[in-house]
Simulated scan of single mutants.
Amino acid sequence: MTLRNRFVTLAALVSIGLGALSTPAVAATTLCHSQTASVAGGTYIVQNDEWNSSANECISTSGGADFAVVNSSMNSPTGQPPAGYPSIYKGCHWGACTPNSGFPIQVSALSAGKVTTSWSTSQPAGSNVYDVAYDVWYNQSASTSGQPNGTEVMIWLAHNGNVGPAGSKVGTVTVGGVQYDVWYARQSGWNLVSYARTNPTTSVNDIDVHDLTADSVGRGYLQNSWWLIDVEAGFELWKGGTGLATHSFSVTVN
């Protein structure tokens, strides 16, 4: 065997070895029309949650704590509730629960640093109309199989288009060094409190759920005897939304 052929043979063997060691790409899971998927080893659930529309709209997830809107024909009036809320959550959403979440937690036991959350997103502009918001749910009892009857606390990171929180603006507060406009609306059976950042962002790190919870309690919109059951993060869609993405999401219960 010539020296050149030895090198060719060695290169081929190395190539075969590397091929054997390579990991096949994980196929994405596509979810349409309110389908759900357990992700990140069961830690979270990704849900398409198209609750107010029948338009074609789908999201995909790699199976980690991520998802992206891959197509959306949604087109709902901005003066009405959103068409849907593709999102990811930890806890119990309408009785569908992630295992070993650490929830429920009674509000009176929700001390500083007990529950923290981080979230990274992509937010396309253009004619898309949406908000980028957490949905943190509190129920008057420790569990429910349907609509929670306590308080819904939304944390708006940003929005695109002519949309805003429901109800009326009731104040401005600075929590954790971030300034929020505070909005309140009484819904049919529960309170809705929205904290809209005055300085929009695409990502947040280690938001302490206790801080905004305490503010809502102080305003009389939430009771210490109620229970934190769920932390969700996603995009309320009115129009379009293709390209919106959650790159990473975490909820830590200490």
Rank of each mutant, 00 (worst) to 15 (best):
N205K: 11
Y130L: 12
G63Y: 02
G171I: 01
S145M: 06
S122C: 02
Y89G: 03
V136T: 15
N56M: 01
H93S: 13
F103C: 07
V153W: 01
Q187E: 15
G171Q: 07
K90I: 02
Q223D: 14
A68E: 13
P77T: 09
A233C: 05
G41C: 05
L10F: 09
E152M: 10
N139Y: 02
K169I: 00
S145A: 15
N254Q: 09
N162Y: 01
P81M: 06
F235P: 13
R4S: 11
F67V: 10
T61D: 02
E57P: 01
V8Y: 11
Q223R: 15
G218I: 02
S111M: 02
S87H: 06
V69S: 10
I229P: 08
W190R: 13
G167L: 11
A11C: 12
Q223G: 04
I229D: 09
Y134D: 13
S73T: 09
I105V: 15
G243I: 07
L21T: 14
S194N: 10
T121L: 02
P124H: 07
G161A: 11
G241D: 01
G164D: 06
T252R: 08
T121R: 05
V175G: 08
L31W: 11
R197L: 07
Y180C: 11
T202F: 02
N75D: 15
Y138C: 06
S53L: 03
A83F: 00
N205G: 11
Y85P: 08
L13E: 09
S15G: 12
V209S: 11
L237R: 13
A109T: 09
P77K: 11
G189K: 03
V170F: 01
D206S: 14
A20H: 04
S60H: 03
N100L: 04
S118D: 04
S87A: 04
V173K: 09
G91V: 03
S122N: 15
V46L: 07
G19M: 10
L31A: 09
Y130R: 14
W226F: 03
A233S: 14
G64V: 00
K169Q: 15
M154T: 10
Y138T: 12
A68N: 11
L13P: 02
Y44P: 05
G146P: 01
S141A: 03
G102K: 02
L244V: 10
N224L: 03
I229W: 00
L18P: 06
L157T: 10
P24S: 12
V170A: 05
S194R: 10
A133V: 14
E152F: 05
G41S: 07
C92K: 04
Q187K: 15
C58H: 10
R6G: 13
C92L: 03
N199G: 08
A37D: 04
A245W: 00
H93N: 15
T151A: 14
G240C: 12
D215R: 07
T117V: 01
Q47F: 04
K239G: 00
T252S: 11
V70Q: 11
P104K: 07
G113C: 07
I155N: 06
G164Y: 11
S127C: 04
V178R: 05
D181V: 08
F7Y: 12
G220F: 03
V193P: 07
G189C: 11
L237A: 08
K169N: 14
V46S: 05
N52W: 04
W183K: 10
S62Y: 02
T78E: 09
P104M: 03
L192M: 07
T252Y: 00
A142C: 06
T144H: 07
N191P: 12
D131R: 09
N48T: 05
